[in-house]
Amino acid sequence: MRDMVEKRIENLGNSVLDLLNGLGDFTNFAIRTMFWTFRPPYRFKLLFEQIYFIGNKSVFIIFLTSSFTGAVFAYQIYVGMKVINADSFIGPLVTIALAKELAPVPSGLVVAGRCGAGMAAQIGTMKVTEQIDALEVMGINSYQYLAVPRILGATLSLPLLSAIFLMIGYGGSWVIGTQVLQIDDITFTSKVSDFMELGMVAEGIIKATVFGYLIGVIGTYQGFRVTGGAEGVGKGTNMAVVWGMITVLVVDFFLTSFLTKIL
């Protein structure tokens, strides 16, 4: 019995140590990539390629997600608001929710799934096929060449994707609100401009920027720590998606608590 308890405590201790080691390693990676972001050479071509991959190539899926999110949310709110005869408030409610939460968080989840996985798979494959060693032997810093453009690309693209999400989501809610639920168009739009504040949009944009940075760091970090062959690449890709999504949700909570106080 005592042996079993000791074993469990030992296992728990080892898990905590592994977690702390992983956190330390991740923090070290984040600091190093930050350092190399500000050192020449600046590879703008690689950055634009990443913005194209992360931003432009995600627009269609963002369009689909946002239009349905706005439409469905308008429907759901209508059911509740109708009971208290406040259905004319659907417009501002949906728009505020989109600006503060529903645009940055789903955009972050989409990018974590689509691009975080892509980053880890690309870098992981390069690692196991010695392409990263080849870069290093040439004297090129692999963090600067591979991680920095991806992290910056995600950091710059996600706020733009979030803004697109907000606009398309608003469009979706407008279509449902005015065309299906028969709310007056003027009422719908004027209430939105009455209740919306710049700080609400800023909150969403700040969140999206932070999510973009974290998704970029997590995706590239998981790629760099890939070991073994194809199995290792698969595992790294999976970890990038899982940790990317968890991070978006957890960090969203803390950012909301913080930003609500200051904005």
Binding site: T129, A134, G139
Partner: peptide, 19 residues
């Protein structure tokens, strides 16, 4: 060290070409 590595050329076991 990175600067110095330009004195080297290397052929890897499986070539390690950028795919």
């Amino acid at each position: 060290l990175r600067e110095f590595r330009r004195n080297f050329g290397m052929v890897f076991q499986y070539a390690a070409l950028f795919d």
